[in-house]
Design a protein around this nucleic acid. Structure first.
Lengths: 196, 196
DNA sequence: CACGTAACGCAAGTCAACTTGCATTAGAGG
DNA sequence: CCTCTAATGCAAGTTGACTTGCGTTACGTG
């Protein structure tokens, strides 16, 4: 039978598939929150979800892919766009929101998994995530410029990286605390610069 | 026999132990560079090093610990302290050196492994690493202050985090390229700040 | 409501990380 | 040179990630 006469291989959207997926992702989150990211066991997830191990392997393939999908499913990636009236207030609100998110168990896990390079299939998701975040930063900076609070010619992307970079460094590498002094210090340094 | 009468359990420093350690670490680096970090196999390392698997497991315990030890053994953690005569030149040289390092296979691997949290035993090494790096940054900033190039009251640690943070974000999260425009843009933004 | 098939259940097996108990070897100290 | 023992060699086993082949179920479609 020629391939062209067949239906376009309609996927099963609702019903059992959706139930299995929801149960597995929920069980995955539960296990990760209980035993940590390294304590994730496919066998335990399968048992809790009332599903056979094979079903998990056929749909997700690897443990990493399952964990990432579960975390992404629980993550609202849309960062609220602050509008406090001042650039300093907006940057501080942005940085604070991100700090709250990465201190969440799910948020911290997402950040650490994003560092792993073995998940080529999620490149699109990564690009979409950062594009959305950079758009929030650009909006904040555009508003500041229209208020005359921004030095002309500032690259939006560089500025946003300068805002979030120190936070990422602390969380992922040095593991120093994200206290208010750090958040405010980062924003004030970014606003004023190093030169007199 | 009371413990106090025994010799202080002299470790075998030279000889076979040292040879085995060197051979295993060299083989580990070779395998990682060939097959990538995920393609590291203890069996292959043991075979190449002419050593039994058990010896590796008894000394390093886990695959992660072995990989980290091999990378640290190959890493000169001392970052040269630049002295170009200007703050901008020094910051650019610092950032450039770090960029070159993290683009090295071993450097990139070290950075990614530092993110993993399951190696509690290496906390001391991490603290020492970052303390040394921050000292380099502080020296550069101190010299700039004595030349009158630095705004008074700048926190050394925050300034250094602001310099390296964007680079870490690009390498680990967004995976954008580390071209010269990025390095110079980051330094110039840090120097001038966002405000007019 | 009947049919086709995507998705699931089940059993069996592969592979590599990691463990354990015991024999053997080779440095370090006397 | 002799002894003690830390470190290695060796064999056997455990565990969990991941695969494969096949029969079964239940959702989607006519």
């Amino acid at each position: 039978m020629p391939e062209s006469t067949r239906r376009p291989a309609a996927r099963r959207t609702g019903g059992r598939s959706a139930r299995v997926r929801a149960a597995v992702l929920q069980a995955t989150i539960d296990v990760v929150l209980e035993h940590g990211a390294d304590g994730l066991s496919i066998a335990e997830v399968a048992q809790r979800a009332g599903v056979h191990e094979t079903s998990i392997y056929r749909r997700w393939g690897t443990k990493s892919a399952l964990a990432l999908d579960a975390v992404l499913d629980r993550t609202r990636t849309d960062l609220p766009t602050p509008d406090t009236g001042t650039l300093r207030g907006d940057l501080l609100a942005l940085l604070h929101d991100v700090a709250v998110f990465v201190r969440t168990p799910v948020g911290g896990l997402l950040l650490r998994m994003a560092v792993q390079e073995d998940l080529a299939e999620y490149e699109a998701a990564r690009d979409q995530f950062w594009t959305a975040r950079y758009a929030v930063g650009a909006t904040v900076l555009d508003r500041a410029e229209s208020r005359g609070e921004l030095r002309p010619g500032v690259d939006r992307r560089l500025a946003f990286e300068a805002l979030l970079g120190p936070l990422h460094t602390r969380v992922l590498l040095t593991r120093e605390p994200l206290d208010d002094a750090f958040l405010e210090g980062t924003v004030d340094l970014l606003l004023a610069g190093l030169t007199p």
